[in-house]
Nucleic acid binder design. Structure first.
Lengths: 198, 198
DNA sequence: AAATTCACATACAGACCTGTATCTGAGTGC
DNA sequence: GCACTCAGATACAGGTCTGTATGTGAATTT
């Protein structure tokens, strides 16, 4: 099957982004050269420079693309399906976490990337919030007023635990992340009940 | 005052480590060259290479030095004083967090650094555990059996929230980190009481 | 089907980076 | 105080990186 000019370029761009994602996770944004990215994608540096201004623009585009992909994959899914989707991605969590962390560090030094990352994180927090709301509803409990803050906490806790697990896998079990969030919910409910009793 | 040979070298080494810490936080481990590190410390690259094998060794040494310093500064301090010490360091949290994150990423790719970082994190978790134990004691509550897990959670939560705050300062207040841990403790206690009641 | 366009390849210039080899001068031992 | 040592400076060689300038062939236009 033959591809039109624009289709072909879109393919090239996609492959470059894919390769960049892998290499950034492996060696860091600074550690991956334009040459290496192009080579892994199966092109020369010429292809890179005719698709992106420079590496900074690629980083923005990569984050944009991942955010959009996440939106589309999760959008409209039930809570169970979102969790299943998360688990399926858990195989290469460390790689995914490394990439996200690389992008986070990069964002500290680049306002454009920071804004992009902020969008992604807000989306993720929102997904957490909806999930938590469902958990409370199922427990027959009114979702707390500060559920937004709770969502930030749950999200931050997940990341933090994944980081800890990467350093000391023997101290942080695989299920620790799931356990911790569940425990968090249960204790939150208990606190709510206690306050209600006065 | 004149310095002996060994004193002078120790000074040089110290300054190089100091400069490396700053530059790693600013531009990342990969983004900071040996030349830049030496220059900021006020030396030439010769000084660097007569103190360290290469950058990898410097990273290990830096982490070692920071861990040791932390040990010494916190060792024997009361819980209040530890919190005060944390707050005093909070001025440049982002820089400190960036450095730690850089080292975390580096550790993913270097076993030696990972072991070093694991030691640091265990120490930090332990400090958390002692702090939490004191909080429970003051609340007149028996510290829970799973306090070790709770300490990991508190530690991970702090890091995770700092990361979130760096991305979206407007969504995560300054006090959020302290608030979250406090809230965590209170809800944990409530859960314990609930379980006791059956 | 000839002319044109443009995605990607290739070649090159200039900057920077690492690691080693050599030098120098201030501390040290005798 | 003289020979010696070694921390740190300087010089150099080899490699890699980025960005641009130019070339080329396949898709597109007319």
């Amino acid at each position: 099957m033959r591809l039109s000019r624009v289709e072909k370029q879109a393919q090239t761009r996609g492959r470059l982004l894919e390769a960049a994602g892998e290499l950034f996770a492996e060696r860091g944004v600074n550690g991956a050269s334009v040459e290496q990215i192009a080579e892994r994608a199966g092109y020369s540096r010429g292809a890179f420079y005719s698709n992106f201004e420079d590496k900074a623009e690629l980083v923005v585009a990569l984050l944009q693309e991942r955010t959009r992909r996440e939106h589309n994959e999760v959008k409209g899914l039930s809570w169970e399906r979102v969790r299943a989707w998360n688990r399926s991605r858990a195989r290469n969590v460390t790689e995914w976490l490394a990439l996200r962390t690389e992008l986070w560090l990069y964002s500290l030094r680049d306002g454009r990337v920071r804004r992009q990352l902020a969008e992604r994180e807000r989306f993720s927090r929102n997904a957490h919030q909806q999930g938590l709301a469902e958990v409370f509803r199922r427990a027959g409990v009114q979702p707390p007023a500060d559920i937004e803050f709770l969502a930030v906490i749950a999200h931050a806790l997940e990341d933090g635990l994944l980081i800890q697990r990467a350093i000391t896998p023997e101290d942080v079990r695989d299920e620790a992340v799931v356990d911790a969030v569940e425990l968090l919910c249960r204790s939150w409910i208990a606190l709510g009940e206690k306050q209600k009793r006065g």
